[in-house]
Design a protein around this nucleic acid. Structure first.
Lengths: 248, 248
DNA sequence: CGGCTTTATGCGTGTTTGTGCGGTATTGTG
DNA sequence: CACAATACCGCACAAACACGCATAAAGCCG
């Protein structure tokens, strides 16, 4: 087995399970521990995973929990500013949840006049600070993990609205595989959000670029705007330079 | 389980609950007490949490500690304890918003198995900490003042459910005028909540007793339980000693 | 081809890390 | 003060790791 094949296999395992144990990989790939260790080290140097004693963890898993405190906050504020440039007075906007979106909401101009639909209670609470914004919280089952409402009831209600713009946080974005996720229900939800909206903007910190998870939400051609903290001409974004996608 | 995963798991617990007990974590993560203690120590050294005898507290506990600025908190905790005595495993419960209700939710037994409908995002977020509780957030317009959802859409959805118990915070309760309020929409909302439920409990700190506001929600005979921080035989409650109303 | 370097891998040895256990000290509470 | 719960300390041990070295395959070049 070639080194590259092994690396791919390891990355697949990681994206699938969010974690790998060195000992499991030894068995799976039938090579020595040292080899696996060297593999993980290399991949870690390339920032493709996060190495820990005993194995490795997915980067996206990583940042979804404790990082949201300080680490990526600056990046998220940059993203927020860019996203806000898409929002005009009088628009009807649908948002998902996640720290990136909440950061954006906090940066909105004081006197914005708009209508927001959201599936995230946190977003609703933040939006309540804006006197001229109408907030509609879409109700349904409340997800303990994602802290958004989900399930059939939410999907039904989404099918009754047609917002001008949908703002989505992301688990992963890949040039070929598009938008992907790990949770089936959230996956359905994102699909519906995307379909019911006239346009969709994806807010995505750069370290989630190039990653592909188990479940496919939508091809990249279904998205109109990609917002990252990088400048639009950054080489990391080269793979996303296609006609239908505007990069901010 | 990798150490880092354990740390993430602990941090998630803390961010949700604002506190963790060492003994709970031992069970949850199936490792020895020493290991948990070392974990907490490490996280404390990294300033990710605040270690105390018996467990740890969220660093931002101060922010939720500022709900010590919540008025009459001690009284509300007493009320909470009494209200919980009404809740049995398997019940379907509808709650309103307000600090009293939120305080109650925080005091719920760890392993409660129940279904909660709520119009308050805050309540939903708190309830999400309980693994065996199903949370349904009723969606609709989001009120900037009361921080609950309201309006026709909420009323419609309420008419489709029939919970065993409705828990209501109160603006005012009067022996003759019953439950009253000042806001027209919230008034409609409370009426509907009361009507759709099999039984209703009113959570009310004593100083709101004997007050009557502009808009009438319901006569006192429509309420089954009155919960205050006072003992049931307190003279202040004499006026409420009627057959249909049980005072806790 | 033969000699040379480069790259990838495995093995042996000593080190570090993570975890549990037993015993003892400390803390909180009635 | 007594008692239980919790914390701390040192030790033991296995698992994971780092490093140097040996080996072998692959690549390169005159």
């Amino acid at each position: 087995m070639l080194k590259k094949e092994r690396h791919d296999s390891i990355m697949r395992q990681i994206n699938l399970h969010n974690r790998v144990l060195t000992s499991d990989l030894v068995q799976l790939l039938s090579v020595s521990e040292d080899t696996i260790r060297r593999d993980l080290q290399e991949l870690a140097e390339r920032d493709q995973l996060y190495k820990v004693h005993g194995g490795a963890l997915s980067k996206s898993y990583q940042s979804s929990f404790d990082d949201s405190t300080v680490y990526a906050k600056d990046a998220k504020i940059i993203i927020a500013k860019k996203a806000i440039s898409l929002i005009k007075d009088g628009m009807v906007i649908l948002t998902g949840g996640g720290t990136t979106i909440i950061e954006m909401v906090k940066q909105l101009p004081e006197n914005l006049h708009a209508t927001f639909f959201t599936i995230s209670p946190f977003v609703a609470i933040e939006l309540a600070n804006y006197p001229r914004v109408e907030v509609i919280l879409i109700g349904g089952l409340f997800s303990k993990n994602s802290q958004v409402t989900y399930g059939g009831h939410v999907i039904n209600q989404l099918s009754e609205i047609n917002p001008d713009l949908c703002l989505l946080g992301t688990s992963a974005l890949h040039p070929d595989d598009g938008l992907t996720d790990t949770d089936w229900e959230i996956n359905q939800l994102k699909k519906t959000m995307l379909n019911c909206s006239k346009k969709t903007a994806v807010l995505c910190i750069s370290e989630k670029l190039g990653i592909s998870l188990r479940l496919k939400v939508a091809p990249i051609t279904n998205i109109q705007y990609l917002i990252t903290e990088l400048p639009a001409n950054d080489p990391q974004l080269d793979d996303y330079q296609i006609k239908s996608l505007q990069i901010l």
